[in-house]
Write a protein that binds this DNA or RNA. Structure first.
Lengths: 227, 227, 227, 227
DNA sequence: AATGAATGAGTGTTCATTCAT
DNA sequence: TATGAATGAACACTCATTCAT
């Protein structure tokens, strides 16, 4: 594993490297993000990198893990205080999208991980999914949702979140002219439009076996628009 | 675009390169798949590559496009003859998973595309999604499904398919020891277990607003198991 | 040596290649002028090149020789009918500059020849210089010029012509913004400004030992300007 | 510009590369002088090159500039203490020829520059010419030479020096068998024979409008020989 | 703890040339 | 006569990593 700093100064340097890495990875991806670019961005010498990380891949794995902690925390904070499973789901997705918008690295780094560090990627998804599964199981026990297989449902939810996030957060609302090579991060600040979130939640509510919730909201909402 | 061969011999060589590329890209990803590895695999000289493709990226784009045509064809063939939207959906997913199992390149190449050729990736997803949208709109007009926003639903379906495919087709059934760097293609021959497909379809049926179908099937199925 | 065409059609193809070569060499220099660029420009297949020339260098040598014939012819035509050596000299230089303006290849190709085909370059200069020497010797015998060593004088004249040509024909009049990478040929259409030619001839007249000619012209001209 | 070394060790390495480059460029010209040949000659790894120079062209430009400084310094040192303009001119040319003999790179590199880095070449000639112009203007003000246009005269002098240098320094005295591809540097150790320098100076003296100086020397010299 | 110098294997790409048709 | 396909050596350049200071 990578060496742990023994002093406060070292601790600071290590953190600087991690932050620089998130920035550089999220902008350029794993392969284009050279160690020297990272150290330049962190303002340290090139050799310093190897004081704290064994290899570039090492840093990558750590970054994925770190991001994983952070999304999950953001999501669980987002869902705290939700009065129903569906509400919790919605809050969780909203938190996920917000996090994605603020840290596009999540997307770019994680997607590339499939080919760079498959293990890290599986761990990442599995951990998030486990959170879903727990929630779904509880909700099922409480009769809040139908008796769908929580594992399959959890992976499906994971996929929905990832794809909707990519489509609306990462790419923007689709009218934006694509091909903005200049700064791929630029589009990362978008939000998922409210009606997309609404429709997505109706989709999920139905999926989880409480169509009445869906119908309720639909009736109260009155109108609905097309995307 | 890339130069077209003017003779039958050239045509054959070009196809050999494309096939080699699919193999090498799917095994190593874009960055590790060097041009020389591709030409070696195709059994041609390195210079020959540039007779048919301007750059490595050029070939990549063409490959993504080619795969896109092929999945979509596989899916539309799979759905031909389905008697309802839900049945069509199921057949489409089954075809998609089968294709993925046989061409793991789809996954690996496409996921990496986000960082290599974003435009190609957007095109890829967008085209598949458009097919979904059309189907959903028709089904909605026929009263077969609820009035969910077809665009949002389509992207959600795309996400579900991708994630379930990654989880069960690419990774295998989860008990398999991971970390098999030696030949990541190996796990690509798995199938999505039937009950996973069943649960996934129940999830989707509910989502699309015809819970009665769900209930029906559930009752007729009698038992249900956990993943 | 390079093969000679046996038919009229072959003769035409060969000439097309030579013309394309002059164009491409003069625009890009020897190294950047690939055989394929030449054949493309000539509108023939790549293999056709080797029907008429053994190597790229072969073509280069032939081109230098061809250009040499053409400049010398242009110069001797230019001097025909001159009533004095000095007048002949002036007419010769004017013809040389005109030729250079119309065929920038002369400059670019010949200068690069030093490193590509030294023999061709020596031959080129030597032949032109020999023409000068003959003329100077005659003029000296006629008492038209002083008794300067004709060989040294001839090389000096060669140098003057080349440098003035580069400075005023190739580069333009010096006020032109440099760095015109776009089309280096563009500047090749300039002329040597008349007063530069005048001053150059006064310089040469003095050098050749007939200062009275210089004085005469200077007096009749009255004014003189600075460059 | 290219990165500057931050330590003494780096400084030494950079200088080694510059020296190797002069050697290799002067022997093979820009195109044949591969980076690996240069680094081999310098005894450093190939990657080291890019620590100090951004590109091969970068190094080339720097080398041209460096050579330019050095010739001009050699020339101005050579002319120091000359008692007349004509004497200064002679000393300057002698210094120029000596430098050329010792650093054939001047010739080969500079001539190729026309096609490799036109800007560098123009700068090179222009700077030398500016030195000439200053000297000529002074001499003209002192009545030492006629009132020839100094700019035109300066370029003419530049051309004479370059051509005579090529003919007698680079090629040797003309009897030497040409075509010595093996080591083109070999011929670079020649000197301009004294009588060639004499005749060249008579040519120039006449050109600059002080024919009496010419006559004087001619009379005192008595005889003259052919080259 | 920190660094800049150094490296060499590796990359994508070009090109003069050969050859079967 | 003419061609386009094929080649492999060569090139400029990058980069993760090591090491002396």
């Amino acid at each position: 594993m990578s060496a742990q700093p023994r002093t406060a100064r070292g601790e600071k340097t290590r953190r600087r490297l991690l932050e620089a890495a998130e920035h550089v990875f999220s902008k350029h991806g794993y392969h284009e993000a050279s160690v020297s670019r990272i150290t330049d961005h962190a303002g340290v010498g090139q050799g310093t990198f190897y004081l704290y990380f064994d290899t570039k891949l090492d840093l990558f794995d750590e970054l994925v893990e770190d991001l994983n902690h952070r999304v999950r925390q953001a999501m669980s904070e987002g869902t705290r205080g939700a009065s129903s499973r569906i509400e919790a789901e919605r809050a969780g997705f909203a938190a996920f999208f917000r996090f994605t918008a603020e840290h596009p690295a999540l997307y770019r780094v994680v997607r590339e991980a499939e080919l760079v560090s498959p293990e890290a990627l599986r761990m990442h998804y599995t951990r998030i999914v486990e959170g879903y599964i727990d929630g779904l199981r509880e909700a099922s026990a409480d009769g809040e949702i139908g008796d769908i297989d929580p594992t399959v449902a959890a992976w499906a939810l994971m996929g929905i979140g990832e794809m909707i996030g990519m489509r609306w957060v990462l790419w923007g609302d689709g009218d934006a002219a694509p091909g903005n090579d200049a700064d791929p991060t630029a589009s990362g600040t978008r939000e998922v439009p409210p009606h997309v979130l609404d429709e997505m939640m109706r989709f999920i509510s139905g999926a989880l076996g409480r169509p009445e919730l869906v119908r309720d909201r639909r009736e109260s909402a009155g109108e609905k628009e097309e995307s």
